[in-house]
Amino acid sequence: MLLVTLFKHIGSYTLLMSKVFSKPDSWRMFFRQFPKEMEKLVVNSLGIVIIISVFIGFIMTVQTKLNTSDPLLPTYATGLVTRDTLLLEFSSTIMCLILAGKVGSNIASEIGTMRITEQIDALEIMGVNSANYLILPKIAAFVLLIPCLVIVSMATGLVGGYFVGIFTDILTTADYMVGIQYAFIPYYIFYSVVKTLFFGFIIASVSSYYGYYAYGGALDVGKASTNAVVNSSVIILLFNIVITNLMLN
């Protein structure tokens, strides 16, 4: 039964995506929607990304330093661990899980509300490909700009770690600076950016799917929103394993 439901979802999702990735009825409308979606989904997420990254960078540095007090460890180890954790997993995977909550629920509830208030039916009656008109600008804007959010997260996370040296006496800023530059592998940034392109697509498309097929009332839009966040998060975690194996193994 579970398997049947899973295949039903995969089938409906594939059909929806085939409608989404068709030629827009009006490019003029697409290019009008595109910057609006950029602002709504990416620019408006910048604040939360910066706040979380700074604090996680700070606390990660403190925890690493306090839990690795072995005198044999080099003094730059804390900075190195913080940097690699941020670059490899936090700024890409964990930040995308957070964005799945913020952006995913936003997309699912917006499209779901349009569905239950017959706005999507109105578009269909007019002869508009509603899936393409509503979803394509969201996917395009989010996938195109999510790498910027990840790079901002990496940078501000490292700044958060630097604050440990300024505001506490457990680590010097000089040791931290050496650590974050030591044995730096630029490929890690490329790996993170590639991962987030996939994750961005998963967040935008899966959330749109749940919103587009919402039915009923406010309660059902809430359910669609929850399903969107939960399922995009699970899919992100699964894809993380696959992409990490492919790119780092």
Binding site: D121, A122, I125, M126, G127
Partner: peptide, 8 residues
């Protein structure tokens, strides 16, 4: 559908 109008 371009020839159709609808009041919901």
């Amino acid at each position: 559908r371009k020839e159709v109008g609808m009041l919901f």
